[in-house]
């Protein structure tokens, strides 16, 4: 699996808004990295650049080798309202040309992996917010991507659903070992989940700190209240404060 290198990444929009100024970072294959920063500092822009949905104004995105298969999870579940959970999850496979039967079979398995066995035929409007987000994650993972990009995926969920999904995400990551770039503006979520936290300054985003979190996995709920957790969270908070302007 390839490493991902961002070098002097910048993006200025046609409107003149400079969203991202100069981001350089190397994300090793299989790492869980969070991107935190104030609203509007270019986090979503960075993810779109990595996914190839947008092109940088300067700098480069380099993978060792070809650009791998990528899964993307938005803040909203972003499901096709007219399609069942299984059809939604099967989408990447069907677009890649897999025939419907085989795609649905794998989609069902993926739904099982995110704890949604039995909901294959449910329509999005019949699912709760947390369940819809699980469908979205299953869809992002169904094609076995090497990298998973997540843009504040749990921001709209309630506290306990969010904690449960955090745990499930870590379990999936440790099982399948894809690279995760996780955008959040919750300091605590970033510390709980990741091995490394990249802190961006206010717009235009610049890297102000690259903080390692050496705590071993699996991390359980009690880890959230440990002194080690607090030490890292303090570092991230201070870096965020320093990056404000």
């Amino acid at each position: 699996m390839p490493d991902l290198r961002l070098s002097h990444l910048a993006r200025t929009f046609a409107s003149g808004t400079s969203a991202l100024a100069d981001l350089t970072a190397t994300i090793p294959a299989g790492a869980f990295v969070s991107l935190v920063g104030p609203s509007g500092c270019g986090k979503s822009t960075t993810l779109r650049l990595i996914a190839g949905l947008d092109a940088p104004s300067a700098g480069a995105i380099e993978w060792d080798g070809d650009r791998p298969e990528i899964g993307f999870v938005f803040q909203e579940p972003t499901l096709m309202a007219w399609a069942s959970a299984a059809r939604n999850v099967a989408l990447p496979l069907e677009l890649a040309g897999l025939r419907k039967g085989a795609a649905l079979e794998r989609a069902r398995a993926a739904l099982g992996h995110v704890g949604l066995a039995g909901f294959e035929n449910a329509l999005p409007r019949e699912l709760s917010g947390g369940m819809k987000m699980r469908v979205s994650i299953a869809r992002a993972l169904v094609a076995g991507p090497a990298a998973l990009l997540m843009d504040e995926p749990f921001a709209a969920l309630d506290e306990s659903t969010r904690a449960r999904l955090n745990g499930d995400l870590l379990r999936l990551w440790s099982e399948e070992k894809f690279t995760v770039v996780f955008v959040t503006h919750s300091v605590f979520e970033s510390v709980f989940l990741s091995q490394r936290i990249l802190v961006l300054s206010g717009r235009p985003g610049r890297l102000v700190a690259d903080i390692a979190n050496p705590a071993p996995y699996p991390r359980d709920e009690l880890y959230r209240t440990s002194p080690q957790f607090n030490d890292v969270a303090r570092d991230v908070l201070l870096a965020l404060k320093a990056g404000e302007r």
Binding site: L53, E76, T78, A96
Partner: peptide
């Protein structure tokens, strides 16, 4: 966002 997803999967 769904449009982007279709682009991501090279539809």
């Amino acid at each position: 966002n769904l449009r982007d997803l279709f682009r991501l999967y090279r539809a």
